[in-house]
Design a binder for these strands. Structure first.
Lengths: 110, 110
DNA sequence: TGCTCATGTTCAATTTGATGAACGTTAGTG
DNA sequence: CACTAACGTTCATCAAATTGAACATGAGCA
């Protein structure tokens, strides 16, 4: 049974922001909801949920909608994203591949 | 029938970047995959897909994983996100609520 | 080096989101 | 103002993601 999820405020806010950015981008580009939905390859219903900031839709479709609406994810375009991707890949090789829980716990203050 | 989707490069790159950011954040905080998965409320399998940059997972769980891994979505924390949310809400009220396709099409040369 | 546990990966069963139609409402345009 | 199309919303059905277990591999640590 899949439990009902709870989300941190940051998560809810981020979802809401992204949804609004997509809607704004879509409107500024003069696209109807049906237009964008067709291009993304989803239904108008799902796009509506995305713009509403719902947590359920697949991240792939949301990011695709953002891309087609002109929203720059991570404030970066294609090229910068690829560069960033490379940097992160490098950084990952410098980190331990496996996390061995030491005595110092996760220190989850807050 | 749900057709197999295709994603723009920007989308794929963004997914990959976000996945790596989450993994890096998790490792730097000394959390095992199981740790983070438990906190997010998902299975280790799904977290693995998220860190791999798969397009399928729900955006809500991905963002939640990011939040719990210390990744700042949109380069902003809670407060800034709320502010941004407000700004966007305002901006939306200034835009047309309904997009009326004018004769100048979206000009999506295909 | 050897041991232990985190990780990578696959799989069937189940839960969930996506779909598309339908309907009422709203807003842009003539 | 009137008209038309975009928008908001609901719902049953179906396809897809999630789950949790299981196993192999590999990395970290004594």
């Amino acid at each position: 049974m899949k439990r009902k999820r709870s989300y941190a405020r940051q998560t809810r806010e981020a979802l809401s922001v992204l949804g609004k950015l997509i809607r704004i981008g879509r409107i500024e580009r003069g696209m109807t909801a049906q237009d964008l939905a067709d291009r993304v390859g989803i239904s108008r219903t799902t796009l509506h949920n995305i713009e509403k900031g719902a947590p359920g839709p697949e991240i792939g479709t949301v990011f695709e909608a953002a891309a087609l609406a002109g929203v720059r994810l991570f404030d970066q375009g294609d090229a910068a994203l690829r560069t960033e991707n490379g940097r992160l890949a490098e950084k990952l090789t410098l980190l331990p591949k496996s996390v061995r829980p030491s005595r110092t716990e996760v220190d989850d203050d807050f």
